[in-house]
Amino acid sequence: MSSFTFPVEAGAVLLFSRAVGYPDSAYGDGKSGAPPTFVQSSAQFDPESHLRPKPGEPWRGSGRTPSGLAAPVPTAGSLHAEQSYEYHRPVRVGDLLTATQVPGKSWEKAGRRGGALTFTETITEYRDSAGELVVTARSVAVVPSKVVEAPAEDAGSGGSGSNEESAVAR
């Protein structure tokens, strides 16, 4: 379990709203709350987030080599299978939220192309400075248990359609 503080800032809400397709009139006044998936940007404030480069640490992105790493990328990694939010009250600019991540259930399922898929649920609770629950986020990640040669296969690329196992890389 880890915990960190996530300030809801007007500029961040505006930039996020633009990125998902809103006109500035929707959330640009700093008074109209935030888009439904805005709390996902708490990753910016998560000291342990592995989704951003950190000074002095290796990063898997192209530089001198396509992978940015000395060794090839080992596995397909984790894919995002499901995401949901429960809103206990609207998120507002000025909120100082505390995000607490709690591991959830874990289960296995046979993949369509053989091998087992391991699903892992993570619950993140966002509480305001009074300790009241604002948003509960539930994320389900899936990891193929076997190293796959072509990650695109297990990521359901190329329009493989609505199979239960398909998932999109985070």
Binding site: L15, S62, P66, S157
Partner: peptide
């Protein structure tokens, strides 16, 4: 940039094609 999810699979075409095997 807005979300903080800088996974290069989504922004780095060279990485996506040559390191990760996607189109």
């Amino acid at each position: 940039g807005a979300s903080g999810d800088y996974n290069p699979l989504h922004t780095d075409d060279l990485y996506a094609r040559e390191a990760a095997g996607y189109p």
